[in-house]
Amino acid sequence: MPEWLNILLRSIGLFFLTLLLVRLIGKRQTSRLTFFDLITGIVTGVMAAAVSLNLIKDLANGLIALAVWTVFPALIYVLSIKYKTVRDIVQGKETVLINHGKVLEDKLLEARLTPEDLLSRLRKKNVFNFADVEFAVLEPTGEVSTLLKKDKQPLTAKTLGINVGQESVPQTVMLDGIIMDEPLTAMGLNRRWLHTELEKVGVAPENVFIGQVDSVGQLYLDLFDDTIQVPKPKTKELAYATMKKCQADCELYALGTKQPEAKKMYEKSSEILSEVIQELEPLLKR
């Protein structure tokens, strides 16, 4: 058998064999590669290349080595799922680099990180001042995760103490001028409703690029013709403003009337309305 044919056959055979063996190792995500994953990957790759290029004359020898380097990692992964000690050895533990805002130099040395490395990794996490970090760990994959100090963390509605309304996912009811019946019926709506809404804003159905309905049944549109300004649905804001006006009216009447019982009635109404406004504010305004 000529040399080139030998290499061709070996290459083809090994191509499919490695494909199979790699599947055997399992589908751990390549984006979360630990050092061990990297080594097994390189070793199997190099070995497959060496065997297919006929650098290792005896095919059986090459295949045995290849089998060991794929079966063992697969075995170890299975074991590491079951036992934590195996997991710690194979995948490595995370190393705490910054604790309570102080950089732990000995841990840095342990992880073979220079201070410049630490700073550059923090910068990648958008932290330019190490003093902003309360806690940082080096993950087994080599990434640095950071917890910022409380006063440097992004604002949330909770830290501000604001009540926000729950919002369900908007349904896409029109795409490319085509009405999607399934999401429409899921919202309890139909084509006729959609046509009425489109007529209200004065838009032809075939001009709609995207149409979405939010949880309270308001229609948001994007048109093919970008020169047309589509009015944004204002029903929520309007309802909120009207309620506020009614509440103010009640207060005004309470001041204006001379009859004590009417005054009491108006005052009570205004009170109820202000409670209603308070409760509905998160739903209607945000």
Partner: peptide
């Protein structure tokens, strides 16, 4: 005022009927 209040009430009712949460 009464008319506006009734209007708001109706709006809220439509919201309630289509709200899934």
């Amino acid at each position: 005022t009464l008319a506006s209040l009734k209007g708001v009430q109706a709006t809220l009712e439509t919201f309630a009927s289509s709200e899934e949460n």
